[in-house]
Nucleic acid binder design. Structure first.
Lengths: 204, 204
DNA sequence: GTCTATACGTTGATAGAC
DNA sequence: GTCTATCAACGTATAGAC
């Protein structure tokens, strides 16, 4: 049974983490201030420091949550044996992630861009394992002649970069779209086009 | 004829701009300190402020130079009428840019990621004009049946994101490559693969 | 044009009353 | 668990001697 304090702690931590993600996405780690995060969470700054000792610790928590979401979204890749189906669902999931969680994508992009100092451990362990596994699947597809011969690295980097571009560069995209954000239908259309081009690029 | 002071000014400004690009790429605008930039340029901090009144002004200069380089590298697109040749040279130029100027790419990515507050003007004018022009070329190719029907936006975002990924996410790439940077041959191989996949995706 | 010293604002973090 | 007051550190920018 959760007691009163525990509930308060959980709700406040959640509010802080959500606010932190917004501020980190917009201003980066150094550019974000604990004051901005606290205000967005509706708490005084000292309360934030009560729940998270340091800004770095809060940042770690935010990143960790993003990684978990990222891995969850990637599971869809394993659920289909057919290359076309697996790739279609995977690319669609990535495009949806960019649509629903652009802030998460931006925080991640910012982290890698500036040296992956915090995410480095995760990349070298869990992430690398995940990737080696997927790489093997793609290599099998190639050997079985089910897709055109492609370097798995090049394929995955293409999928990641293209899909994440719709989140990380949304400001640029919006400007080129006459300062209009995509509506649901338009975004679905882009998603279909991206899926189609990637499938075509491996000839499935 | 340039006098002594002018020469000193030019060399020092150049040193500062180059140092600034490195520091902005690594730490972002807010994360970069004028002290770090000055030290890397081999000057006292007050000298930096003598040449560039504010950090923001220095940042603007750095960004502007990057944009000029970017546009220069893009000119290759206009020099060929054949879709296959034009796309090949363009993608190769972009891949070379990521290889030779990863810092420039990162500064740009960081700028867009965090709201394009400084580059917004450029994007809405010069950049948009440039893009509208290229968009028309691609649409013509489609109408003439020389490439598969594709949304020009989706095609360009694919080219930009994939090529820039090799600069902006190089930390992640290096980790997945067992903490080894790509050598020249490997990078050339990736370049060929990227070109090939993009050409295939539009069926030329 | 160069450099030391410094003013001034901002920010991460804490103390201590409630 | 909350909040006001406060501090120490840092970072931008400038003054003024050389």
């Amino acid at each position: 049974m959760k007691d009163q304090k525990e509930i308060i702690r959980e709700t406040n931590e959640k509010k802080i983490i959500q606010a932190a993600e917004q501020v980190f996405a917009r201003f980066g780690f150094k550019g974000a201030t604990t004051e901005m995060i606290a205000r967005k969470a509706g708490l005084p700054k000292s309360n934030l420091h009560y729940y998270f000792k340091t800004k770095l610790q809060l940042y770690r928590v935010v990143l960790e949550r993003i990684l978990i979401e990222w891995m969850d979204a990637a599971e869809v890749f394993d659920q289909y044996q057919d290359p076309k189906t697996a790739l279609t669902h995977y690319v669609e999931a990535k495009m949806q992630f960019s649509r629903n969680r652009p802030l998460a994508s931006k925080v991640w992009a910012n982290e890698i861009l500036h040296g992956a100092t915090v995410a480095g451990d995760f990349l070298r362990t869990e992430f690398k394992n995940w990737f080696e596994d997927k790489k093997q699947i793609v290599e099998n597809w190639v050997q079985e002649g089910r897709i055109k011969p492609v370097d798995p690295y090049v394929l995955f980097y293409m999928i990641w970069s293209v899909t994440q571009h719709y989140a990380d560069f949304e400001n640029q995209i919006e400007i080129l779209n006459n300062d209009e954000p995509y509506n649901e239908d338009e975004y679905q259309q882009k998603t279909d086009d991206v899926v189609n081009m990637i499938l075509t690029s491996v000839r499935v």
